[in-house]
Design a protein around this nucleic acid. Structure first.
Lengths: 245, 245
DNA sequence: GTCTATACGTGGATAGAC
DNA sequence: GTCTATCCACGTATAGAC
């Protein structure tokens, strides 16, 4: 296939996924407003959600460039167009802001992943879909994924535990699928959790090193297929003797 | 093999590697002093290197916990035992400190990696050694590796470019070995750079998610073998038809 | 070589006008 | 709902004593 054609198909696949998965900045911020409404003193939902979206968007952008700790609320005010004081109508402290973004991001990501995977039956199909959904979702919500990854370790103890637990839950989605495949003989017998961890590391590379992959002309759909192939070969039931040369 | 025995062997392998590779905090700080001696106003080398080691050690520890931006020089003074003013005998600004650590860390890591790989001849052996050396080295210098990874994106433009270039050079070590193996038929024909990128992502997971791997009872030597197996299976010249079930 | 004391800027957060 | 003005703690960096 000519590269140009491949790129167009990859873009199409991403567009379809975006529509079907139904994730967007606005949706996520509506969820934040619904759940943390008491921290937001603004009553009008339309205004509140719109401004939350600008705040979250700006936070992710600035934090991804120089880190959340180095982002000042003055930076944030400038970029959102709100005033320094005005920001405090939307959160009670800078720490609360990071906590809210963490919690909502994690929740939505896991939800979408599970929903996508559950549309398939066989272990092979479910694993392929888990990989595909992870790559495409992290492409759509890249700033969120990067933020969750990079800032998780800087949270307070309680929030950090929560973040670690949520990350291991995602990993467990993969591990469970692998175990299913092992039970029905489509995957070879190996440590499922370790295999899931390695797959996840490769999946994370997609959004953590986005610049590099972009420079190399890699598309989200293309990367997903590469990871699917890695999984296929790694988990194939072929005995090791036949592989070693 | 009984787990206890496996763990002891893994620890032995790490110890041998540490001795042979000849990397240590003191060595790295001696190199820093040799190269950035003009920024260090302390003349006595013994004192300078010893204090640099405490400063770098503390910087890595604090930055790994809460990020370099969030680390104050008061934190650093407390932890090193030096005074706030005394620190400035060892660097000219906080920014210079991060830059120095970045540069020296990258340089030493790449040096050791190349030296280890060059002790082997065949592509298979060289790839296995590159993987092994990367895992063991990142186990020994874990705080350095984590720091280099997490803080690279927060550097100034010039320094960041340098960091990216150095990282791609490491990746190119792996890609070159894979191409060698493809040329002599021991690896199948696939995008060598993409394969190297995936391997590197898995290798980075070892130090970035150290807590998780530790909780699961994984050892450095054991992880290295797991990644070697991943590489073997992924690059095996077996045609895809024989793998797909 | 290292310390204490201090200058000076910037940070998060709040009060009260509009 | 949002802004301006302001508070005060803490940040980096330096000067000068010991």
């Amino acid at each position: 296939m000519v590269p140009a054609v491949a790129n167009r198909r990859a873009a199409d696949e991403l567009r379809v996924f975006r529509r079907d998965a139904g994730v967007s900045m606005t949706e996520l911020c509506r969820a934040i407003y619904a759940e943390h409404g008491d921290s937001v003193s603004v009553q009008n939902e339309t205004i509140a959600v719109a401004n939350l979206a600008r705040i979250v968007d700006a936070t992710l952008a600035i934090a991804n460039r120089k880190g959340f700790a180095a982002m000042s609320l003055r930076d944030l005010a400038r970029r959102t167009g709100l005033s320094l004081g005005g920001l405090y109508a939307y959160f009670q402290s800078k720490d609360e802001l990071v906590a809210v973004i963490q919690r909502q991001g994690q929740r939505q990501i896991e939800q979408v992943l599970r929903r996508q995977v559950d549309q398939h039956v066989t272990a092979r199909a479910r694993l392929d879909e888990a990989i595909r959904a992870h790559v495409l979702l992290s492409e759509i919500l890249r700033p969120w994924f990067v933020f969750l990854y990079m800032e998780a370790r800087h949270l307070g103890q309680a929030e950090r535990r929560q973040a670690v637990a949520m990350e291991e839950a995602t990993e467990e989605i993969f591990a469970a699928i692998i175990r299913e495949g092992q039970a029905d003989g489509s995957f070879r017998d190996t440590d499922a959790l370790a295999a899931a961890a390695m797959l996840k590391a490769v999946l994370q590379d997609w959004y953590l090193k986005h610049g590099k992959h972009g420079r190399r002309g890699q598309t989200a759909a293309g990367y997903a297929r590469a990871v699917q192939e890695l999984a296929t070969r790694y988990l194939a039931p072929t005995p090791m003797e036949e592989i070693t040369v």
